[in-house]
Computed example of a mutant assay.
Amino acid sequence: MMGKILAGLIVVCALVAGAAMYWLQVYAYYDEVPAEGASVVLTPRDGGAPEALEIAEFQGIDADSSPLRYRACFTTDTTPSALDARFEPYGGAEPRVAPGWFDCFDAEEIGAGIDAGTAQVFLSERNIAFGIDRVVAVTEDGRGYVWQEVNECGDKAYDGTPLGEDCPER
């Protein structure tokens, strides 16, 4: 009888721990980025200072636990082709999956739009944190998305490869 009680206690503890880990990963660490004063910036092709994009309907989340947890959605009247003429494109970007409750950011849909050419990705800011770039995707229908990507310096730093001269100080 004592073995059944201990086994039941272990199962209950495992379920509570699993539920707590799930809640912590999906809900606890995220904070809403206030829409008031929020801006989305893009880096010009000439390498000048990032310029603010005119946006509306901003929604964003972020977490202190990782620089990769930033996600945002917005709308804009500016077309991707108009942005492409002025701002630096960002190749190889792959949107990261957002928590299910942040429903404006669907990484699979955004990725499909990038692959189909209906969304273009631009550099927002390089090395927003060491080895992390912020990127912006804008679709032909005026929806925009922001997330952060590990750049070449970040790849080298995290896999132990010596950093090149192009990488900033940590």
Rank of each mutant, 00 (worst) to 15 (best):
G18Y: 01
V136P: 02
C104F: 12
F105W: 07
I132A: 00
L42C: 01
F102T: 08
R126L: 01
L53Q: 10
R126D: 02
R143T: 01
M2T: 08
I132C: 00
Y70W: 09
C153L: 14
A7M: 14
F122S: 07
R69F: 07
M21I: 11
Y30R: 09
D159M: 13
V33Q: 06
A116N: 14
A82L: 00
D84H: 07
D103I: 09
P34I: 13
F58T: 04
I128V: 14
V135T: 11
A28D: 13
Y22H: 11
E54Q: 14
A56Y: 11
E36G: 14
R170Q: 11
G117D: 12
Y29E: 10
G144C: 12
S66T: 13
D31E: 15
L163G: 05
V26Q: 04
P50L: 05
P162R: 04
N151D: 15
M21G: 10
I5G: 02
V136D: 04
D64S: 14
G37K: 01
E88C: 01
M2N: 10
P44R: 05
C167S: 09
T139D: 01
L83T: 03
D159R: 13
N127S: 08
D155C: 05
D77N: 14
V135A: 03
A82F: 00
E109N: 07
F105Y: 14
A19W: 06
A107W: 09
K156Q: 12
I10W: 10
A72Q: 10
D62E: 04
T78M: 09
N127L: 00
D62F: 10
A82M: 00
Q59W: 08
A72K: 07
G113S: 13
D106H: 12
P67T: 06
F74Q: 08
I132L: 00
V40W: 02
S65N: 10
C73Y: 13
R69W: 00
R143W: 01
G100Y: 03
E54H: 02
P95A: 09
R170C: 03
G92C: 02
I55C: 02
V121H: 06
W23Q: 06
E149F: 05
T118W: 12
G92H: 05
S81C: 00
A56V: 10
D77S: 12
R96F: 08
G60D: 03
A85I: 00
Y145R: 04
G160T: 05
F130I: 06
G100K: 08
T79D: 03
P99T: 07
A56F: 13
S124R: 02
T161K: 05
A119E: 12
I10V: 14
D31R: 15
C167G: 10
Q59L: 12
G154S: 14
P50N: 01
Y158R: 15
E109M: 06
C13P: 03
C13W: 05
G144F: 11
D115R: 15
V138I: 11
G18T: 10
S66W: 04
